[in-house]
């Protein structure tokens, strides 16, 4: 961890002179619509469940933004969902399984591609076989859809989904506070602000991580383990990064369609946390990195101040 300089302050919140270190990823975006906002979100939430970290879930996924009926191809409420993985094959597998098990099954749902990229993943082109020969192919307006008959009518699904290789995973903010309530308030404010940035997601529960990790472990079987430097109960027995008044730390992990989206999301998050101030929220903002040697993308906090 680089040496900290704690002389930067915005609205009383200390900003560490450090950076978040992030990695290149593969990503796709889907637009899931439903008969109501409730059911569009339900399908999207199910599809992005258990997708917090590629370490254990195979992919990272979340709702990017809600899409109004006026902006969806079928005029119904929708959710833009993003899925990130470390390889094209894994992404293809995850997207297909998740859409097949969680969107196809959700009442009244439809699934559209929402990203134009350098390559494509099979979506409806594979799921169509569920139609057992009764599926219908439709091509118009430069798009290809599959209509699969199901018990409440039809599941409409775009045949292919675009894939980008310019995605970035692992942008992050560490929010340090005097107590848990302050850390949580700051984290919620940051997640709400990041939620408005199109093309960036926060895949952890509610967008927040309380168990930030470091690379490696004393146990051979573990590739990652607790971030002891930011764990308040280990202050004094490990090389801690926490000050005497820091009693709770929460992390916001950000994946973006592009590096710019990650930077914009981090800027929005920092802006929200500093606006909240140290009295109600975080007293200090830091970021996680690996010394700059592992990740290609570095986001310096001082460059992302509101």
């Amino acid at each position: 961890m680089p040496k900290l300089k704690r002389n930067l302050r915005v609205n009383g919140v200390k900003i560490d002179d450090t950076f978040a270190e992030a990695f290149g990823m593969r990503a796709t975006a889907l637009l899931i619509t439903g008969p109501s906002r409730k059911w569009a979100r339900q399908a999207a939430i199910s599809m992005t469940g258990y997708a917090t970290s590629v370490i254990g879930c195979g992919c990272e996924a979340a709702i990017d933004v809600d899409v109004p009926p006026s902006a969806t191809p079928d005029g119904r409420p929708g959710c833009r969902v993003m899925v990130f993985a470390v390889s094209t094959d894994e992404l293809a597998k995850q997207v297909l399984n998740r859409v097949g098990q969680c969107v196809l099954t959700s009442p009244g749902s439809a699934c559209f591609a929402d990203l134009t990229g350098v390559a494509e993943l099979k979506l409806g082109a594979s799921l169509r076989y569920f139609g057992d020969g009764w599926q219908i192919s439709k091509k118009f307006g430069g798009r290809h859809f599959w209509r699969v008959p199901v018990m409440d009518g039809e599941f409409l699904c775009e045949a292919m989904a675009g894939l980008t290789k310019d995605a970035v995973g692992g942008g992050n903010l560490l929010l340090l506070a005097a107590d848990n309530a302050g850390a949580l308030a700051a984290a919620e404010a940051a997640v709400a602000a990041i939620g408005k940035v199109r093309g960036a997601i926060t895949p952890f529960p509610g967008g927040v991580v309380r168990s930030g990790s470091k690379v490696g472990s004393k146990y051979k079987s573990m590739t990652a383990s607790t971030n002891d430097a930011f764990s308040p109960t280990l202050r004094g027995v490990t090389k801690s990064e926490l000050g005497p008044g820091d009693n709770a730390v929460l992390e916001i992990v950000i994946d973006g369609e592009t590096s710019d989206a990650v930077a914009e999301a981090m800027r929005a998050g920092i802006g929200a946390v500093t606006e909240l101030g140290p009295g109600k929220g975080a007293t200090r903002i830091s970021a996680g990195n690996y010394g700059g040697k592992l990740g290609k993308f570095h986001y310096h906090l001082k460059d992302l101040l509101p």
Partner: peptide
């Protein structure tokens, strides 16, 4: 006459174009 997303999509396409 079940609900048809295809009908909604093609309707919007035909009007949009």
């Amino acid at each position: 006459a079940p609900d048809s997303v295809f009908a909604a999509v093609i309707d919007r396409y035909l009007v949009g174009e």
